[in-house]
Design a protein around this nucleic acid. Structure first.
Length: 887
RNA sequence: GCCCGGAUGGUGGAAUGGUAGACACGCAGGACUUAAAAUCCUGUGACCAUAACGGUUGUGCGGGUUCAAGUCCCGCUCCGGGUACCA
C-alpha cells in the first residue's frame, strides 16, 4: 500500500476533532499529572514559521508520551494577540485591530491543527478577549493594593500596612503619598523616547545610534510622561534565590542572574563643602576610599543644580542639555571619549578629609546606585581615562604585583592604571584613625565598612541592576488600566465588580499631539463622574504586551470561569508547569516578569507554588541556507542554481557561496510549513524538525533533509501495512531484542528531550525488521505505539489496520523486557597502547584472568606483543581490553 | 570588556573517560524499467596499499593527566548568543 499521507492526516485530524480525543481530563484524582506548556505565539499576519513547529512538536511528543504513561496531561494553546502590528495596520487602513487579530488567529489555528498537535482546543485563550483581560486588569488591581514587607520578604495587602504616627499627623494627603510610595504599582513621571513625527513612544530598542527612530528616520526626543511603574526590584532577592530551585538551562539562569545584577558594597556619605548637604555614593570597593580623588554625579542627579556654583552654572547647564539629547546607546558607547564639566564645588573625603572636586559626567547613570560615584582613577580604567583627560590627581593605594620594575614605577606614580588586587599602601590617616595599610581586599573591605558604620558615615549595601518596570504604553491595542484620575488629583481604581473595563471603539488610532495614547480621543469612554458630581478621566495608557503573557499559564487551568480567575482546587492540581518550551529570546524579560507576578500572587495566597515553571527548555533557532557573492553581497535564494555541489546566480552565472543565515524575506529563504506539509505531510515535518539535531541548538533547515524522514515513514507504512509481512508465530529473538532496545532508547530520549536520537533508534529497528522480512502482529503494535508521539497520523492509521477500533492516544506505553536485551557474549575490542587491533568474542560472564589469558594466546596478539615488552594488561569486563607494550 | 555556549566526514549530526563518525542526506555502483521517477541492494572520513589482507592518520590549535581523551585539566584561535561607562 502506498503511503498517502494527505488522506491519512486529514482523516485522523477529523477523528481527533470529532471525538475530542485531547480534551483535558476533568477528574483530578489521578496523582500523576503533567502540565506541558508552549510559549504561545503572537499571531502575525505572516502565518506560522518553521520555528514555531519546532517547540510545538517537542511538547506534543512529550504530552502524547505522558498520556500513554497514564498521566493526566494539560496541553493548551492560545494567542498573545495584543501588539503593535495590528494597531499600525489599523492606522493605515482603518481596519479595527480586533478584525486583523481574528483573521491572524484563524490562520494560525488552521496551520497548527494541520500539524496534528494534541492541544485541548476547548481551552484556547486570547489575551485580547475581554473575558481574558478582565483578569489581567484584576491582577493589576492586586499589584496596586500590595506592598512589600522587606522584613518578611513578602508581598502583603495594603490594608495590613501600618502608617507611622508622624505621617498620620501630616494629614490625609501625606498619608496617601506615603501609601503610594509603598504600592507595587505606582504612577509617576518617567522619561520616555518620543517620536514627534510618528507621535508615538518608542522602546529603547527602536532608537538608533544617531538618535533617530528606526521606523521613520526622524529624531526622537526625551519626554517626561506620567507612567505606571511596577516595583519589581523589591522582589530582586526572591527572584534571584528562586533561580536555584528550578530545572532550567544554566545559561538562562545566568542571564537572569546577570539581569538582576546583585552587587554588594557600601553607601558612603560625603560632606559637600559650603552646603548643608551630603552626597551619597554607592561603591563595591569602599576599601579604595583613600584613592578617591574626585567625584562624579549624573547630569540628572537631583543635587546637580544645588551643587553647581554660580560661576560654573552656564557650562553645567549646557552640558546637562547636551546629555539629555543623546540616546542611551550614544551615552553608553565605550568607544566614545568621556565628557564632563566641573561644578565648582568640593566634597570632603570622610577617611582623610581631603577636598575632592565634584564633576558632572554622563558616564555616571542616574538609574544605578545613587547616581553619584567616588572616582578612584589609579584602579579603575574609566576613572583613569577621565582623570587623564581633565588632569585630575591619581593616587595609587594598592601595591602592584608586577615584576616589570618600570611598570611598577609608573603605577606607583599614577601614570598607569592597576586594576588587579594588591595589598594597600597610602591608606591611613592619623586624624580619622583609620588604617588598612598592608591588608588584602577582603579584610580591607570589612574593616572600612565597620569603620563607616561605627562613625555613621556609611553602611553596607546591596545594589541591583534591576530597575522599576515601566508598565504603560501610549497605544490603543492593549489592556486598558482600570484607573480613574480625578479632577482633584486623586487616583482611584475601579471596582473589581466593574471589570472588565473594555476598550472603546475608535475612529482614529493615531496618538494625540501631546504624547497621549489614542484612547484620549474616546471622549465618551474617557470621562466619568462620581456620585458627588466629581469629574474624572480614565487612564489613557494601556498595558504593555508582557501583561497578558505574565499569567496566561494560569488561565488555561480554568479558562471559562467567569466568577474567579481560576478554581483554587484546579490550580492546586495542575501547578506548577512541568515543562515549558520556547525560544531563548524570552530568557530574561518574559520569564522574569511572569515569575515576579507569580510571586506576588503566591504571597497573596492566590496561587499555591512560589515558582510557575518547574522545568524550562529553550529550542534553538532554525536558520536557513543563504547565498552571497565574492563581495559579500547577498543573493536571493530563489535565483540560485546548484550544479555539481556548487552554487551559481542563475541571472549572472557567477558562482556564489552558501552560508547559513536567519530566514528573512529579503534573502527569500523563508521556509513555509504549509509547503512542507503539502509535499511531505505533517508527520514528516514533525519528524524532520526533531531529527535535524538536538532541540536546543541553532541549526539550518535543509529541504533535502526532509526526504530522509519522509523515506523512513514511507518504508514504515509500506512494510507494516503489508499483511504478507505479518506472521502468526513466535517472534524472532533478534527482532525482539531490537524492538526492546528501541523502546528503551525512545523512552529515555523522550524523558530527556533528545528526540533526534529517539528517531534514529526507530530507524535502526525498521532497518532490522525489513532485513528480517517478517514480524508478528504484537511487534507491529508495539512499534506503532512508540512511533505515535512523533508521527501520530501514520501511527493511528497503522493501529487501525491492526484491527483496533479506537485511538491509540491513551494506549499504555510498552514496557521494556530486559530479558530480551541480555547478551551471552561480548565482542571485546583488543587494543595495544590504546589503538584498536582486533576483536574477539567472549562470554559476558568470563573472568578477567581468563580473558587476559585467551587474548594473549590469540595469534593476532603475537604480532603486537613482539614489537616490545608487555608491561600491563587492562581488562574492563564487557567493555575493552588494552595491552601496554613498551619498547 | 564581561558572562554563557560551540567547533567531529562533502552536509545535518551520533558517541556513561573505553571500538570515533550511529542514524540520515548527498554521492558512486548495481537491480527493476523502453526510459525516467519511485523502490530495493552494495559501497562511502582521508591517505598508502593489495588478488585478498593490511597499515598510517584523523574530532579547531598548543600543552598536560590517564593503561586509554572528541570527552577531564591548563593556555590559545575562531564562530554564535547575551550584556554593558553597573561604580
Amino acid at each position: 500500500m502506498e503511503y498517502n499521507f494527505t488522506d491519512i492526516e486529514k482523516k485522523w485530524q477529523k477523528y481527533w476533532e470529532e471525538n475530542k480525543t485531547f480534551r483535558t481530563p476533568e477528574y483530578l484524582t489521578n496523582p500523576k499529572k503533567c502540565y506541558v506548556l508552549d510559549m504561545y505565539p503572537y499571531p502575525s499576519g505572516a502565518g506560522l514559521h518553521v520555528g514555531h513547529p519546532e517547540g510545538y512538536t517537542a511538547t506534543d511528543i512529550f504530552s502524547r508520551y505522558k498520556r500513554m504513561k497514564g498521566f493526566n496531561v494539560l496541553h493548551p494553546m492560545g494567542w498573545d494577540a495584543f501588539g503593535l502590528p495590528a494597531e499600525q495596520y489599523a492606522i493605515q487602513t482603518g481596519t479595527h485591530p480586533s478584525v486583523t487579530t481574528k483573521n491572524n488567529c484563524d490562520t494560525f489555528r488552521r496551520q497548527i491543527k494541520e500539524l496534528g498537535l494534541s492541544y485541548d482546543w476547548e481551552r484556547e485563550i486570547n489575551t485580547t478577549d475581554p473575558k481574558y483581560y478582565k483578569w489581567t486588569q484584576w491582577i493589576f488591581i492586586k499589584l496596586y493594593n500590595t506592598w512589600f514587607d522587606e522584613k518578611l520578604q513578602k508581598g502583603r495587602p495594603i490594608s495590613e500596612f501600618i502608617i507611622p504616627e508622624e505621617i498620620k499627623k501630616q494629614g490625609k494627603k501625606e498619608v496617601t503619598k506615603y501609601i503610594d510610595s509603598k504600592r507595587l504599582a505606582y504612577y509617576d513621571n518617567a522619561q520616555v523616547w518620543w517620536c514627534p513625527s510618528c507621535r508615538i513612544v518608542c522602546a529603547n530598542e527602536e532608537v538608533l545610534f544617531d538618535g533617530s527612530h528606526e521606523k521613520c528616520g526622524n529624531k526622537v526626543e526625551k519626554k517626561n510622561l506620567k507612567q505606571w511603574m511596577l516595583r519589581i526590584p523589591l522582589y530582586a532577592e526572591r527572584l534571584l534565590s528562586g533561580i536555584d530551585n528550578v530545572d532550567w538551562p544554566e545559561g538562562i539562569k545566568d542571564m537572569q542572574r546577570n539581569w538582576i545584577g546583585r552587587s554588594t558594597g557600601a553607601e558612603v556619605d560625603f560632606a559637600v563643602e559650603g552646603l548643608n548637604q551630603k552626597l551619597t555614593v554607592f561603591t563595591t570597593r569602599p576599601d579604595t576610599l583613600f584613592g578617591a580623588t574626585y567625584m562624579v554625579i549624573a547630569p540628572e542627579h537631583s543635587l546637580t543644580v544645588t551643587i553647581t556654583t554660580d560661576e560654573r552654572r552656564k557650562d553645567v547647564n549646557d552640558y546637562i542639555k547636551a546629555a539629555s539629547l543623546k540616546s542611551d546607546l550614544d551615552r553608553t558607547d565605550l568607544a566614545k571619549e568621556k565628557t564632563g564639566v566641573f561644578t565648582g564645588r568640593y566634597a570632603i573625603n570622610p577617611v582623610n578629609h581631603k577636598k575632592l572636586q565634584i564633576w558632572v559626567a554622563d558616564y555616571v547613570l542616574t538609574g544605578y546606585g545613587t547616581g553619584a560615584i567616588m572616582a578612584v582613577p589609579a584602579h579603575d580604567t574609566r576613572d583613569f581615562e577621565f582623570a587623564k583627560k581633565f588632569d585630575l590627581p591619581v593616587v595609587c593605594i594598592q601595591d602592584p604585583d608586577v615584576s616589570d620594575h618600570n611598570q611598577k614605577e609608573r603605577i606607583l606614580k599614577g601614570e598607569e592604571c592597576w586594576t588587579e588586587d594588591g595589598t594597600y599602601i597610602n591608606s591611613s590617616d592619623m586624624a580619622t584613625g583609620i588604617d588598612i595599610n598592608g591588608l588584602n581586599k577582603e579584610t580591607g573591605i570589612a574593616k572600612i565598612i565597620s569603620w563607616l558604620e561605627s562613625t555613621n558615615l556609611g553602611r553596607e549595601k546591596v545594589n541591583y541592576k534591576l530597575r522599576d518596570w515601566l508598565f504603560s504604553r501610549q497605544r490603543y491595542w492593549g489592556e486598558p488600566f482600570p484607573v480613574i484620575h480625578w479632577e482633584d488629583g486623586e487616583i482611584s481604581l475601579i471596582d473589581e465588580k466593574e471589570l472588565p473595563l473594555e476598550l472603546p471603539q475608535l475612529e482614529k488610532y493615531l496618538p494625540g499631539e501631546s504624547g497621549e495614547s489614542p484612547l484620549a480621543n474616546a471622549t465618551e469612554w474617557l470621562t466619568v463622574t462620581d456620585n458627588s458630581g466629581r469629574r474624572g478621566r480614565r487612564e489613557t495608557n494601556t498595558m504593555p504586551q508582557w501583561a497578558g503573557s505574565c499569567w496566561y499559564y494560569l488561565r488555561y487551568i480554568d479558562p471559562h470561569n467567569d466568577k474567579l480567575i481560576f478554581d483554587t482546587a484546579k490550580e492546586k492540581y495542575w501547578m506548577p508547569v512541568d515543562l515549558y518550551i520556547g525560544g531563548a529570546e524570552h530568557a530574561v524579560l518574559h520569564l522574569l516578569y511572569s515569575r515576579f507576578w507569580h510571586m506576588v500572587l503566591f504571597d497573596l495566597g492566590i496561587v499555591s507554588t512560589d515558582e510557575p515553571y518547574k522545568k524550562l527548555f529553550n529550542q534553538g533557532m532554525i536558520l536557513a541556507f543563504a547565498y552571497e557573492n565574492e563581495a559579500g553581497g547577498k543573493v536571493a535564494a530563489d535565483i540560485i542554481e546548484e550544479r555539481d555541489g556548487k552554487f551559481y546566480n542563475s541571472e549572472t552565472g557567477m558562482e556564489v557561496r552558501q552560508i547559513v543565515a536567519k530566514m528573512s524575506k529579503s534573502l527569500k529563504n523563508v521556509v513555509n510549513p504549509d509547503d512542507v506539509v503539502l509535499r511531505y505531510g505533517a508527520d514528516s515535518l514533525r519528524l524532520y524538525e526533531m531529527f535535524m539535531g538536538p532541540l536546543d541548538v541553532t541549526k539550518p533547515w535543509d529541504d533535502k533533509g526532509v526526504k530522509g524522514v519522509f523515506n523512513f515513514l514511507g518504508r514504515t507504512y509500506r512494510f507494516f501495512s503489508n499483511p504478507g509481512n505479518i506472521v502468526a508465530a513466535d517472534e524472532n529473538p533478534e527482532i525482539l531484542k531490537g524492538l526492546h532496545q528501541a523502546i528503551k532508547k525512545v523512552e529515555g530520549d523522550i524523558e530527556n528531550l533528545r528526540f533526534n536520537t529517539a528517531i534514529s533508534a526507530m530507524m535502526i529497528f525498521l532497518n532490522l525488521a525489513m532485513k528480517k522480512g517478517k514480524v508478528t502482529k504484537e511487534t507491529v503494535n508495539i512499534f506503532t505505539k512508540i512511533l505515535s508521539p512523533f508521527a501520530p497520523h501514520i501511527a493511528e492509521e497503522l493501529w487501525q489496520q491492526q484491527g483496533h477500533a479506537r485511538t491509540l492516544a491513551y494506549e499504555p506505553w510498552p514496557v521494556v523486557n530486559e530479558t530480551y536485551l541480555k547478551e551471552d557474549t561480548f565482542e571485546y575490542p583488543v587494543s595495544f597502547n590504546g589503538k584498536l587491533r582486533f576483536k574477539i568474542e567472549l562470554p559476558v560472564n568470563m573472568g578477567k584472568e581468563e580473558i587476559a589469558r585467551i587474548v594473549l594466546a590469540d595469534e593476532r596478539a603475537q604480532k603486537w606483543l613482539s614489537t616490545g615488552k608487555m608491561s600491563d594488561i587492562i581488562v574492563v569486563p564487557n567493555r575493552i581490553v588494552n595491552i601496554v607494550v613498551k619498547n
